[in-house]
Design a binder for these strands. Structure first.
Lengths: 250, 250
DNA sequence: GATCGTATGATTGTATACAATTTTTATGCT
DNA sequence: AGCATAAAAATTGTATACAATCATACGATC
């Protein structure tokens, strides 16, 4: 969770700014393995509960087992995979209860961030520009029926809320959960029609800008929790597993 | 964050229960390295910002570099250490702002858990027995002027609150933060007199049992945030560094 | 036929060896 | 002396090799 690029806490970076030249860290194989694994998981190539064999993965990616193991340890600590010594590593199995807890935890973090944003007066003016941009992206992608793009814009919106809070620890935790949710949402497009989703975010932003904390709490809870109660992720996962070419991992 | 033993969600386990037979995982070297490093950090042998050299650590612990590296990757992902490729790993540097954010994040999680506990009716009856036990421990350790024991009991109390919420994701995140705070609090005993701390927890429990969510939010915020505003962790750290035998890491 | 013991293969855990990069030290020049 | 440059040491990143453990299959014993 500590390797996310620190967000600039100012509303936006000036274009001629030197801060753009932050030293970009050499990308090691571990990073690439992490990225590859998450990508494959988000695309449904690996399903929750699937076993991940170090040797196979190393061979497929053309690297040795060492960086693969280290990448898996990173993902283990962030909850993406679960490990049992000498028995193997699996993509974290999914239950409806767990997804619900995940969403609720994310809501808790966003609520805290939103409250602190209000306290700091960051809930209006130039501070909310990122939110407006995200909503704009949502409208665009919704018109195109681009489910993936909409999900990305949705994530950007909520990430922007977390940034407003200005608490880097909360933001890091949020990013951890967001990565897990990316995998979950990779399984299924959300249950609601796209225009409704966009409208909800408009409403959410309105409540945020009013600065009424209890109302914000309610709105976030409504927005995120209710959104997911209707979806049966376990069933979707099972369907995906059966639809798979061959050999659902034993 | 995924390797914590799952808490039993019932108030207490029955004696003839099968859940006692949780599979005991073989302890690998990685686990022992993780434990050793956290222990040393909590005892102030390593200070925030200190460089951690793989070779040295491996030699001191009598193992090869491989498990050390994997352990460090685990700790990296949970925020205990920070890593820059080819430049090395350091115990996460500490700033007063960061500690404040850490505490605030923990508060956010506990608040969410407490709210959900109230919704589920887990804020009274047998459910709060763990809280009572923790307070009892606090009274005992406070009488003995045992600062370390008091800190442990304090942690147990707040962990118990998180368990009441029944959200395993929230609990996992909380454990992550708790470990980091263990290291921070290893630097300094808290600013308040011990009996006052015990009393505060009594009050906190009373508010929780009333089930008034806004009041709970306020109480938790008061309790945890105010507690830390007075302490200058950066200064304490600097003092510790200078008091160290020799060679404060460059 | 069921249960236990044993052998085999697959997979993970650990150690060692080598390559790439950074930091430090030594050196030469103005 | 001060600074730039280059060799050397230290440290990290990666690959390979070996040991420990688990899973499965097969046969022996009761």
């Amino acid at each position: 969770m500590s390797r996310h690029t620190q967000p600039s806490l100012a509303p936006q970076a000036v274009s001629g700014d030197d801060s753009e030249w932050r030293k970009l860290p050499p990308q090691t194989l571990v990073d690439r393995v992490v990225e590859a694994l998450i990508s494959q998981a988000a695309r449904g190539v690996i399903l929750p509960g699937d076993r991940i064999v170090e040797t196979d993965l190393a061979e497929k990616l053309g690297v040795s087992r060492v960086p693969v193991r280290e990448a898996l340890r990173l993902l283990e600590s962030s909850g993406i995979v679960v490990n049992a010594p000498y028995k193997g590593i699996r993509l974290r199995p999914l239950t409806n209860l767990w997804v619900h807890d995940l969403v609720e935890a994310r809501t808790a973090l966003e609520t805290s961030a939103a409250h602190r944003a209000v306290d700091a007066g960051h809930h209006r003016g130039g501070w909310i520009d990122p939110l407006l941009r995200a909503i704009s992206d949502m409208e665009l992608t919704a018109r195109r029926e681009d489910a993936y793009g909409l999900a990305a814009a949705d994530t950007a919106f909520h990430r922007a809320i977390c940034r407003l809070g200005g608490n880097s620890v909360v933001l890091d935790l949020w990013e951890t959960l967001a990565r897990q949710l990316t995998i979950v949402f990779g399984l299924a497009t959300l249950g609601k029609p796209m225009p409704a989703i966009v409208q909800e975010h408009h409403d959410l932003l309105s409540v945020l800008m009013l600065g009424d904390k209890p109302a914000i709490t309610r709105a976030l809870h409504e927005h995120i929790t209710v959104m997911n109660l209707a979806v049966d992720y376990e069933a979707i996962q099972e369907a995906r597993r059966n639809a798979r070419p061959q050999g659902g991992q034993p």
